[in-house]
Amino acid sequence: MMDRRSPLQRLFELHLPLLVIVLFALGPYVWMMMTSIKTNTDIGAWPVRYWPQAFTSEHYHALLERTSFGGNLVNSFIIATGACMLGLSVSLPAAYAFSRYRFRGRRLLMTQFLVINMFPIVLIIIPLFVLMRNIGLLDTFIGIILGHSTFAVPFSIWMLTSYMNAIPKDLDEAARIDGATTLEVLRLIILPVIMPGLVTTGIYIFVTSWNEYLFAMMLSGQNVRTVTVALQLFIGEFSVQWGLLTAAGTLIALPVTLLFLLVQKRLVSGLTSGAVKS
């Protein structure tokens, strides 16, 4: 699509508003990052010291060398990736069924997936703990991944269904006339077109799982402790380790942001790049 606006118009209608939004999004994060490289004396100073007297990497050293944070990052990454893969692989066929088939109980089943999402997690967590204990999944990756699938799967099904609904049905039918099976239609026709939606949903699951605390706190022990639980260890009864906490916060946001930087090109594929025309 052509943009016929003048550079000045683009400045006021695109660059400036977006800059304001980016600054709003970034502000608290930058503040956190600044704090993480200040000494403990500068951190609590009033008036606020925007430019610290000395920069230090002591908090990062302490975080990575004297706490288990590095290992926790790996655990979180495994869990978030696992939740993402499990979530997407069971949700994609389900969404296809909801989008392309009309069958008995369809609406009831769709609603059922929403209802699962509606129950406050805090109250099912103790029964869930007992359940996981009984089937021996406490303090395992699988246990937490299953826990996270309670919000990942319903969400993915609904989002993927709505992305799929946006794809014209003529596409599948044309392929079927050419003799493609259902699985081939899903793999060769739907999958490429739905990629932006799939990526977005995957990111959603990853991010939510990455940031989840309650399941991780209850269902994990020493073996599979995640970053969110490790963070909580910096907030003690009588002291908050601000340096460690902000250093950890700065690091925690990085994998997700980098991941997004890598996959965001995928967001521009799909229909606009010509799937319909071919």
Partner: peptide
């Protein structure tokens, strides 16, 4: 995690 005392005792009770 201490969590204001809440998390620690929730874990213990559970």
């Amino acid at each position: 995690p201490w969590g204001g005392g809440g998390d620690y005792y929730t874990r213990l009770f559970a």
